[in-house]
Amino acid sequence: MKYAVKMTGPVQQVLRAMLEDAAVPRYGLQISKQADLEPGTLYPVMARLEGVGWVESSWENADLSIKDGRPRRRYYQLTKDGAEQARLALAEISGRREKRRSSLSAAQPGPLGASL
C-alpha cells in the first residue's frame, strides 16, 4: 500500500517514538532524543509529516514560557488520521519484514504455496 509519506528509516523512528503516547505533544528536542535522531534529520522529517497532515504543531502558551523565562516552544502531535496511518504503515513494514525473515529461514518454499 502507498502512504502519503515515504517510510524511510528516520520517518519510522519518529513515528514509533510518537506513537508510544500519541496524545502527548512533544517539542523537537524530546522527539530527537526519543527517536535517536540528530536535529538535522529530525526537522525535515517533522516538516514532511506536518506537510501531509500526519502531524500538527503549535506554539506553547506564551504566558508559560514567560514565567519560565525562555522562548516559546513548538509542540508536535500526531493527528488522529496521522496516528492511524502511521500504525498501519508501521504494521505493514514489520509484517513484510517478518515474512521475509520466515521465508529466508524456511528450507522449503512453504508459506507462500500454503497460503494459496
Binding site: Y3, A4, G40, Y43, P44, A47, V52
Partner: peptide, 25 residues
C-alpha cells in the same frame, strides 16, 4: 545542536517548498 540543525537545512528547505512530494523524492 546548531551544527546538526544547519546540516539538515537544505533538505528542510526542499521539504517546506514541496510539502506533498514526499513520495517522489
Amino acid at each position: 545542536f546548531a551544527v546538526h540543525t544547519m546540516l539538515g537545512i537544505p533538505r528542510l528547505a526542499y521539504t517546506v517548498r514541496n510539502p506533498a512530494r514526499g513520495r517522489r523524492r
